[in-house]
Write a protein that binds this DNA or RNA. Structure first.
Lengths: 337, 337
DNA sequence: CTGAAAGCGCTTACAG
DNA sequence: CTGAAAGCGCTTACAG
């Protein structure tokens, strides 16, 4: 017999199919006599019976499956988030299905469709071109949470790092060192991540009374960071410290600085964001902001699980900010005289 | 109407449910009149109809889903493999479900069970404690391919980098530079990856007529590399070049060398394996072996798709080796005089 | 070219 | 405490 069904177990145990179903369900087990439960379990064990999740899902209208849209798993920022989600959702019996979108709107739509076909019970979106009106109606009926992204327009729950506070720490650190003119290599302003960090930077500099220069990169990538750095350095500024909107951008900046013979941190201080793996082993070790990715994943999972539990959608639209902290390493120092 | 079914589409189009099914299936569409197909498509479009993959899977006994076991997505070695798999499988309509196992045997078994419940049509195993006899019978009936691992005992297809040739390149490079005594910080010998590289190293050194020292680490991690390096340096050797079984190990070695004031590459040359992201930005940039991870993923997907197509299991047990090449950077140089 | 019917493997009122 | 029956949403022989 290839794959035994409940019927096979029922026959072997000498009970009805429905009894097998009850005996094997943790929540219905107690309805049966101990003896029956044991006979069924023995039979199931003997046959190597495995529940068919497809059949159950079809019947219960719940797939116990969560879909996740992520820009690119190859970007080390995301895997810890995925792990946090998987660990938490998994312990509640959910399976996570991750799809890469490369931040491409068409792929996002296609991935969403695919997951909707799979009858996922919920969504985790770490990627959002998804304009509020671009969101297929179908998704509005499915519990969803954004992670590392916010949507001002929609009433979706979200989990983001507390950028404002972390950026303030960055600026504080640099001004404490004596810097009076700072630059920000910002991420794309179409993304909340890019906007929030820039706004926070400008505000913090304003409050500290230091000059704030901004150069917007057109991606969160090393090449985009390098290009922005070129533009920045070609401008005539007194900048002695650069804060990049993420580590990849900072690496691009670092590359250009090396090419131009600018020493870090002697001539210029550099701060990243995210604390990617290995940035502590760079030369110099990168001062950056540690984002609690794993915890963000766990938190997103928690929000989602709660929404899944609720019939009403009263829990939708909550937004959680997790603290991120500056990690001071070797790429920052007092400005040159 | 929450989620329209085929019946709803049928009613709107004025045809039978079975006709809707045929009109929407790319392979059955041609059985129908153009006119009917169009009416059905229009109706489906109007209702925003989406196929229920659970129902289809239950009926067809194929979930169009592939399960993947991976030790840890957080290890940057794996995501490119996952992308290669996802891209290739996705274009054939399959959905990939990835589960982390942390190389823990119990978790591997649990993950396997879970995926079996989900009725996956195939497995990709990037993790194998899975002893040949430990493999649940169920998996033998499901097309499976190993990636980055081989199993001598089982007749499972596998895709691995061509370690032998790459390691030969490493040794060649070092001896060309003038090194006459080399060390290998090997990975755990329980894993084929660990064994193969060590064997290849010893053979290549033998052929080149240089001294070969081996220190086995008990994990493929930075700390394991550091510990192995401590042991190695405490031995009395003439070693002037170290080849680590992967980059993480190499980073552990590098850390210890720095602590002990040994300069790389002036005093000692160091070679890694895998070409992880950012190792080219280290100080010094790491000489390492570039493993074609993405292509390994694609290749594994191709093997799996072929096995899925075949009724007979005549295609099982093929093994593919993909070429890996040395990337020379700054961590290797001639030995000190 | 199209429809009516059976059935994939479950769960869950309903009845006893 | 347990069983018989209906039905989740599809696909696919079978019949016409």
């Amino acid at each position: 017999m290839a794959r035994p069904t409940m019927m096979d177990v029922a026959d072997l145990a000498g009970v009805a199919r429905s009894t097998v179903s009850r005996a094997l369900g943790p929540d219905t087990r107690h309805l049966l006599s101990q003896d029956t439960v044991q006979r069924v379990e023995a039979a199931a064990e003997e046959l190597g019976y495995r529940l068919n999740a497809l059949a159950r899902g079809l019947r219960t209208q719940r797939s116990a499956t969560i879909g996740m849209l992520v820009p690119d798993l190859t970007n080390p920022f995301f895997p810890p988030i995925v792990r946090g989600l998987e660990d938490t959702l998994g312990s509640e019996g959910y399976t996570l299905i991750v799809v890469n979108t490369d931040n491409d709107e068409a792929r996002e739509k296609a991935a969403l469709e695919k997951l909707l076909h799979q009858q996922v019970d919920g969504f985790v979106l770490a990627t959002v071109h998804l304009q509020p009106d671009g969101l297929p109606d179908a998704i509005r009926n499915v519990p969803s949470v954004l992670v590392n992204r916010r949507s001002d327009v929609d009433q979706l729950s979200s989990v983001v790092p507390h950028d404002e506070a972390a950026v303030r720490e960055v600026v504080q650190h640099l001004t404490d060192l004596g810097h009076r003119s700072l630059a920000h290599v910002a991420g794309p302003q179409a993304l909340s991540t890019g906007r929030d960090r820039r706004t926070a930077f400008e505000r913090a500099c304003g409050e500290a009374g230091v000059e704030a220069v901004v150069e917007v990169a057109d991606g969160f990538t090393v090449p985009a960071g390098a290009e922005a750095a070129e533009r920045l350095l070609d401008r005539d500024t007194d900048v002695t410290g650069i804060f990049a909107a993420n580590d990849l951008l900072a690496l691009g900046v670092l590359r250009v600085l090396r090419e131009r013979g600018v020493r870090v941190p002697e001539d210029l201080s550099l701060v990243g964001y995210n604390d990617m793996p290995l940035v502590e082993m760079l030369d110099p070790p990168l001062t950056t902001v540690k984002v609690p990715q794993y915890q963000m994943g766990r938190e997103a999972a928690r929000l989602l699980l709660e929404e899944l539990g609720e019939e009403a959608s009263s829990l939708r639209g909550r937004s959680v900010q997790l603290p991120s902290h500056l990690v001071v390493r070797g790429s920052t120092a007092p400005p040159p005289d």
